[in-house]
């Protein structure tokens, strides 16, 4: 397998990078949606993320990557209960995937050949404690979207079919990317993503030239290129780990909470998920910046990505959601 493009070597696209880093610090923020034109490095960034994530400790033989032998589901009949370190799973959900592959299904081979009823885990099991990446998420078949909505919401995959009655943990960070020209995303799914980022090609010529140079170097002298960026990636990973540790100590004052609430109320964001995500993202950012308290600056920095996809869309308003968020932020400052 070829090594992914180093995360630190991605030119520009600061917002996308920040969003990805924040979810790596606090998984409960709940995923990133990257929408943008073709050829802007959407998938590159997501695939680069895998290399950046710290490894997880899991039971070796467990199909759902459980952290302790007691957490392993009964149906899995785990034989090897030693603890091992594995890279954080980043599971690709291909578009043509069948429902069975996603949630898992009856193990047909055993059912047909031995007449036994056993469960064959699917992609959701593999993605537990990690990331689930869907490229071209807006083209995903509706019935698969329905399944994902349910699981992403509850963090648990419940299978009640073909005589099976099984449940297992499926806590994952949903990462989606897509091109808005090809179709819109259903609002229900949109809401499940914690952060949403819009990317576009850089317009500055020198920045574009730099993108080409780096990509070219990556393709041609991969080993040297990866080596050159390894230090930067390691530094970033350490910073993420540090932020994870200090996250519980980051306080959010009443003033900060009021800011979040005011912002959401003024924008008319539906539900409370907006406030929660905004607060969590701001807290993660504060931790990332080495602060002990969430300030207005952090809220301001993450507000567009936390809220822009939650605004009740006035379908006839030409102004983008980003502009609306920024407008309100300016009024508040």
């Amino acid at each position: 397998m070829t090594q992914p493009f180093p995360f630190s070597a991605i030119v520009g696209q600061e917002e996308m990078k920040l969003a990805v880093i924040l979810t790596a610090i606090d998984a409960s923020i709940g995923g990133v949606l990257v929408f943008g034109d073709r050829g802007t490095g959407k998938s590159t960034a997501v695939r680069a993320l895998a290399a950046l994530l710290p490894p997880i400790t899991q039971v070796a033989g467990c199909p759902v990557n459980s952290a302790a032998p007691d957490d392993c589901p009964d149906w899995a009949e785990v034989s090897d209960t030693s603890l091992v370190q594995r890279p954080t799973p980043v599971v690709d959900l291909p578009l043509g995937v069948t429902e069975d592959r996603v949630v898992g299904a009856l193990d047909i081979e055993r059912a047909l050949t031995r007449g036994e009823k056993s469960f064959e885990p699917g992609l959701l099991a593999r993605a537990n404690r990690g990331y689930l990446y869907i490229d071209e998420v807006n083209l995903l078949e509706d019935h698969v979207v329905d399944l994902l909505l349910d699981v992403a919401q509850s963090g648990e995959n419940v299978i009640e079919r073909e005589g099976l009655s099984i449940r297992h943990d499926a806590k994952f960070v949903l990462v989606g990317s897509g091109n808005p020209e090809e179709g819109e995303l259903r609002p229900q799914l949109l809401d499940r993503f914690g952060l949403s980022v819009e990317v576009s090609s850089p317009t500055d010529i020198m920045e574009r030239v730099e993108v080409i140079r780096r990509r070219d170097a990556y393709e041609r002298e991969q080993a040297a290129f990866l080596k050159r960026w390894r230090a930067a990636d390691t530094k970033l990973r350490k910073r993420i780990m540090g932020a994870r540790l200090s996250l519980p100590q980051v306080r959010a004052s009443d003033a900060a909470l009021t800011h979040c609430a005011t912002l959401c109320a003024t924008l008319g964001a539906d539900g409370l998920r907006g406030e929660l995500t905004l607060l969590r993202a701001a807290r993660a950012l504060a931790a990332f910046e080495g602060l002990r308290e969430v300030g207005f600056d952090q809220i301001k920095a993450v507000a567009p990505m936390a809220l822009r996809h939650r605004l009740r869309r006035d379908p006839l308003d030409e102004a983008g959601s980003t502009t609306r968020v920024e407008r309100v932020l300016e009024e508040m400052a």
Binding site: D37, T40, S201, I212, R215
Partner: peptide, 15 residues
């Protein structure tokens, strides 16, 4: 850029 191509993939191809 002069041709109005904003995606970066074509430039790799050209190179």
């Amino acid at each position: 850029a002069g041709l109005g191509i904003w995606s970066l993939r074509p430039v790799f191809f050209a190179l």
